[in-house]
Design a protein around this nucleic acid. Structure first.
Length: 581
RNA sequence: GCGCCCGUAGCUCAGCGGAUAGAGCAAGGGAUUUCUACUCCCUUGGCCGGGGGUUCGAUUCCCUCCGGGCGCGCCA
């Protein structure tokens, strides 16, 4: 168990590379293998185009020469090799492959799919969720939370030491508004049954008032200055607001099974901001302008930006720069990842560029912004928070569970579900939350998403529910089977069986690709394809009533491996699986 | 005005230098008195936004135009 044997597809690649190199026609380091398209009856392909060019031979001819020269060992996982156009195609030996895949899953269980060698010894920071204090999590915060959490899990599976950082928006002029309102009107939001809702109302109200009363903006700035200067009442009140907000966030995070390794908010960096600005000025990166503001000019490369306001206050840019430098000193991370909305692209370009110019090229180069499109109203317009056009994360999770429960009750009434009354609430939560998470992960894009209840909470097609249903089916079969004898995997020769096995074998590479491209959608696509292949197998290949006992045992092993694969894949997305539904 | 992102089937999206461009939804047809039908199968549906170029080969790379989105110091 200490050093698990290589994954089947890795063995295939190693073997294919070796036999290709052994022909003497192509060097091992010139071999790049690809997965053939679905319509090609092969499992691994070597496109010879580049090598053919070097050899000065036409690709189809070269492919044939290579294929003719390859010899496969009798005990190889590879069964055949043949030329097809400019490709040399390999096909697996199905019996040997089946055994290898099932053994691989059985040996690793919950860690099947992981490859800790990729990131061993490296630290990666993932900044995600990062909500603003005194607000509730909403549709938008849900996206960064869900995407970031999955990335966190995927990178962990790849062996990185991952630091999940909830970079709280706990500093800034907006606190000036809230403090001013609380102070001047002698408010006590902490006495409200829903304190964060009270805070949101306070903020909304004073913003509305500020539209007609310009003195409010000045008062707000003054209060934020007091906060920065350490005014006792301002500090204490600010602290209370943070405590209330964190408690509110925690409710949602616990429903989503999310924890953070650290929650250093923007305020954490406040004591070092002056020094950071000074360093930028000293290094000639930033300039103090007449009147006091500190600005950075990027020539024609990027629009200029500010590190210090005319009133002496700092900005988001200043705090993010300080955060970046802090992370470099503290962690020396291999990657510093920001899961933040696409609208902040320029912001991060600027922050990274400032760091580079200040002499911190290493961290600048290792920092990466993972942008995502915003969630808009159905008509494509943005949600206007001030107009009360918000949809809160908890509302979504609640509605999702309600819908899941309604469908489940229908199924139970129709005699199509084994879920008992006492399990309904728990299973509804797993299904509902899974649906929400999956809808944010199954397609990776930085296009905007128009919010749509039905789409977000869909239960069939490419959804979490479908994946979970296939898992529940697996579990149901395994429960009914009870104890079984040893499985002879070499009996799994049906196309549906082989298709499930091949998809199972692809998990490790999907996880690597997902980590490489910072894309949970790659894992989501893998789980869905596995679920779909299992659906076909389920339809065509009876397990419990298999014609012979030995085949039944083999199929049961395949079902168990599929369940494990679905569970592991969904776990990397942050989605749980129900034993029955 | 400048910069960035996006434009692939009616809709939502994969694919991003290679083999007949793939899924889901929607629409239409079929299977099954089930190992849970939240299922399975089939059909319809694409000048991969337009036009140039690079390449043996372009949905994929470059240029340009069109359409949509986002952003462009003293909010975050």
């Amino acid at each position: 168990m200490d050093t698990p044997s290589p994954y089947p597809f890795d063995r295939l690649r190693t073997e294919a590379t070796a036999v290709l190199a052994a022909t003497g026609l192509v060097a091992a380091d010139a071999v790049t293998l690809a997965e053939p398209k679905a319509n090609v009856p092969a499992d691994l392909a070597f496109p010879v185009f580049a090598a053919a060019k070097v050899a000065g031979v036409a690709p189809p001819v070269f492919a044939r020469q290579i294929a003719d020269a390859v010899t496969l060992a009798p005990d190889s996982l590879l069964a055949t090799v043949e030329a097809a156009g400019g490709f040399v195609n390999f096909a697996v030996r199905p019996e040997a492959f089946a055994s290898a895949v099932l053994e691989s899953v059985a040996a690793r269980v919950d860690s099947y799919g992981e490859d800790k060698t990729i990131g061993a010894g490296d630290t990666v920071i993932v900044e995600y969720s990062s909500p603003n204090i005194a607000k509730k999590l909403h549709v938008g915060s849900l996206r960064t939370t869900v995407i970031g959490h999955s990335l966190y899990l995927i990178l962990k599976a790849l062996g990185y030491t991952v630091v999940g950082d909830n970079h709280l928006g706990d500093w800034g002029t907006q606190f000036g508004y809230i403090l001013a309102a609380i102070h001047d009107n002698n408010l006590a939001p902490w006495d409200d049954p829903d304190p964060v809702a009270a805070l949101m109302k306070i903020y909304a109200d004073i913003n509305t008032a500020a539209e007609t009363d310009p003195t409010i903006k000045d008062a707000a700035r003054a209060w934020f200055r007091k906060l920065e200067e350490g005014d006792p009442w301002a500090r204490e009140t600010w602290g209370r607001i943070i405590t209330l907000s964190l408690a509110e966030f925690e409710k949602t995070y616990s429903r989503l099974d999310i924890t953070f390794d650290t929650q250093v908010g923007e305020s954490f960096f406040e004591p070092v901001l002056d020094a950071v600005i000074q360093e930028a000025v000293d290094k000639g990166v930033a300039m103090v302008e007449p009147g006091g503001p500190v600005a950075i000019d990027f020539d024609d490369k990027l629009p200029s930006c500010l590190l210090r306001k005319t009133d002496g206050g700092t900005l988001y840019q200043t705090r993010d720069l300080a955060t970046l430098l802090y992370r470099w000193n503290e962690y020396h991370p291999a990657r510093n990842i920001y899961v933040v909305g696409a609208e902040q692209r320029l912001h991060f370009q600027q922050v990274f560029e400032i760091a580079r110019r200040m002499g911190y090229a290493e961290i600048a180069d290792r920092s990466v912004h993972i942008p995502f499109g915003m969630v808009t109203k159905a008509d494509g317009d943005r949600f206007r928070t001030r107009k009360g056009e918000v949809i809160f994360a908890d509302e979504i999770l609640d509605e999702a569970a309600v819908r899941a429960e309604a469908v489940m009750r229908e199924q139970i009434a129709g005699g199509r579900s084994e879920v008992s009354e006492s399990e309904i609430t728990g299973v509804s939560e797993i299904l509902g939350i899974g649906a929400v998470i999956y809808s944010d992960l199954y397609q990776g894009t930085d296009r905007n998403i128009a919010f749509d209840w039905d789409k977000m909470l869909a239960l069939n097609g490419n959804t979490a529910t479908y994946n979970q249903y296939m898992y529940a089916r697996c579990r149901s079969i395994l429960r009914k089977a009870g104890e079984t004898g040893n499985a002879n995997a070499t009996l799994l020769m049906e196309p549906e069986e082989q298709a499930v096995l091949k998809q199972l074998a692809r998990l490790p590479q999907s996880v690597r690709d997902a980590g490489d491209k910072f894309s949970p959608a790659i894992v989501a696509e893998w789980t869905y394809t596995l679920a779909k292949e299992f659906g076909r197998f389920y339809d065509k290949c009876p397990v419990l009533t298999a014609p012979i006992e030995e085949l039944k045992a083999a199929r049961l092993a395949l079902v168990a491996a599929t369940a494990q694969g679905l569970k592991n894949g969904l776990a990397l997305l942050g989605i749980r699986v129900p034993e029955r539904m």
